[in-house]
Nucleic acid binder design. Structure first.
Lengths: 343, 343
DNA sequence: TTGTCTTATGTTAGCGTTAACAGGATTAAG
DNA sequence: CTTAATCCTGTTAACGCTAACATAAGACAA
């Protein structure tokens, strides 16, 4: 293939292709977008020229002219927690074939950063925004409702959304786990979680959990929180700490699978009989857990499916005349594993 | 605060703010960008109006007019492998304060997809591109060199780069591990990795590893590959399989820490004496490993630092007159852990 | 006073593309 | 042969913003 790269470094435009192929810019534009009727001969000439020059269309100009942007903003708290890449995977799949592309922003669980990231995203005039959680700053909420584009808040349904909402009820998930634990006869329960006031989903899970315990006249007898570091290692340390302080505990509820797995490792290595002497449970249904010989009880958070549904709402929107306001509540499934005794 | 949201759904423009504050669009533009001299009184009036209306600037128009885009394309193979989010973290930090924003694209280790993602990104005319690896399709390489923007290829330095390169030598990393193993007196070595012809870094590591073994007259005696599924679980299964087939093995080299950890769990649970009877090593230095009571030998891949340096090259570029062609070779550090015997 | 410099604002002309409309050429229908 | 329909291509005017230049008013020195 004979290349003729752009040596002089002047960025190529439609005009260059148009001159190289002897047709108008408009015709080149039509060929490159497969829009409108163009004769086969012309099309081939144009494509050949574009390829030879190495022309890459300028979407900035295209978006401005057409008032359409094929981007969907996705705002999540973190990438380090495997949960979010999985949601992203679902979104990618759901957007497949729609011509839309996800663009990711990360907030580090900070409302201020969320606001900044959102502002930045909206300034690119995306076709929609998907963001985690229902809790946002007033300014962020205002931007969202003023934006005039479909908004999907994901992962949580305990509260009011701006537009559409897809997720699970974390309150109910906590409640369900409590019911299971109480039903299995555990009486002295400890909680281990992360020290994140801004992780509203973890908070709601804990609230639901305590409600469930309260029904049986129980409550959490001790708790332990961490911040930063390797979650697996923290789970181990916290488990040792809480059991030394409160040896009467017969069940430990972890706010996520990673610290849960760390705790499980510690218990097994320290001769605790699981699940007879002590029961354990986490949250999320991470595939990581498949790798341990003892399977931690957990609850699947429907991560992939949430992403999928959210993406479908965004990409399906234009058809149905921008109605919006959908609300999809998914049901997490309790996975008993080997760390809760059955009876 | 009295809001006056955009009820009629017509997208707001600079003109709206200019009318609301009684100055020209240009002055509004200057205020919102903090550029040029504007009197304090005017500035406040404009800011008030912009805030009241809920105006969000249109970067599409801005970018087209100014020929500047504050985006940096980042192309990586996957988000599911914790390695890449860590690199991303480094990039974010390195871009901090430069006004540049990373935009992530994922290739799933497919050269075709890499080409598509790259094309898509370049069509937004970013200020730079950071991408993993040195191996690209001809078309991709052509796009990169034609783009006229700084390009940084990261994570690997074994080969020719298009422009700048930041990473480690995986060949050398494999070689170093081989030297350590041979030096510790292991003689019968097995390799466990992923079935990914497109993971060139893993391939180079293996090549370097075999070179190192060859020096001592050794070679890999058996190997096992996997694809898909939970890496921890796969590591476990493969370890069992390879040791049943080749019980003479006294060392297992894993292509990543996740399967290495799975293998380590299997060995410990099945009464293998580690590291006397059998030695183990992985690659990456994942913080996950801190959570196990037995620490897997591994090699830190300098993930964060790679991201940081790459970002600095991109953001430092404009100053030094777009020279480019930098080449930064980082040195991975062998972490002995508890799974290689010392002597 | 005059002229020069500074500060604060406005005016004009694009940036590279696409929507909308306008034709000429060709074909089909009556 | 006329009329309409279809196909192919071109022209014009935005899209919303900013670079560059223009201008007016005030500050200050000579």
């Amino acid at each position: 293939m004979s290349r003729e790269p752009n040596e002089n470094r002047r960025p190529l435009t439609l005009r260059d292709v148009s001159e190289a192929s002897g047709v108008s810019e408009m015709t080149v534009s039509r060929v490159l977008r497969n829009r409108g009727d163009v004769s086969v001969a012309t099309r081939e000439r144009v494509l050949e020229a574009a390829k030879r020059l190495g022309y890459v269309p300028n979407k900035i100009a295209g978006a401005l002219a057409s008032q359409r942007v094929n981007l969907v903003g996705v705002i999540i708290p973190s990438l380090g927690n495997l949960v979010f890449p999985e949601v992203l995977g679902g979104i990618s799949d759901g957007l497949e074939g729609s011509g839309l592309q996800p663009v990711v922003g990360v907030t580090d669980y900070s409302p201020e950063k969320e606001e900044t990231v959102l502002y930045e995203m909206l300034s690119w005039r995306p076709s929609g925004v998907i963001l985690a959680g229902l809790e946002h700053s007033d300014a962020a909420r205002a931007m969202l409702s003023n934006s005039g584009i479909p908004i999907v808040e994901i992962m949580d349904v305990d509260g009011e959304g701006v537009d559409s909402v897809v997720g699970i009820s974390h309150r109910r998930a906590g409640r369900q786990m409590a019911d299971a634990i109480v039903g299995s006869g555990y009486k002295h329960i400890g909680f281990l979680g992360s020290k994140m006031p801004e992780d509203h989903r973890a908070r709601k899970r804990l609230e639901g959990f305590r409600e469930g315990l309260a029904v049986a006249g129980l409550d959490i007898e001790d708790q332990e929180f961490y911040a930063g570091g390797s979650a697996l290692a923290k789970g181990r340390e916290m488990t040792q700490a809480i059991l030394e302080r409160s040896p009467q505990l017969d069940f430990l509820y972890y706010s996520n699978d990673m610290i849960g797995a760390g705790g499980m490792l510690w218990c097994l290595e320290n001769g605790k009989r699981v699940p007879e002497e002590i029961g354990l449970a986490g949250f999320n249904g991470l595939p990581l857990l498949d790798g341990f010989s003892c399977r931690l009880a957990t609850m699947d958070a429907c991560r992939r499916e949430i992403g999928l549904k959210a993406a479908e709402i965004i990409s399906g929107m234009p058809h149905e005349g921008v109605i919006g306001g959908e609300r999809i509540v998914l049901e997490p499934k309790l996975e008993w594993g080997d760390t809760i005794r059955k009876r």
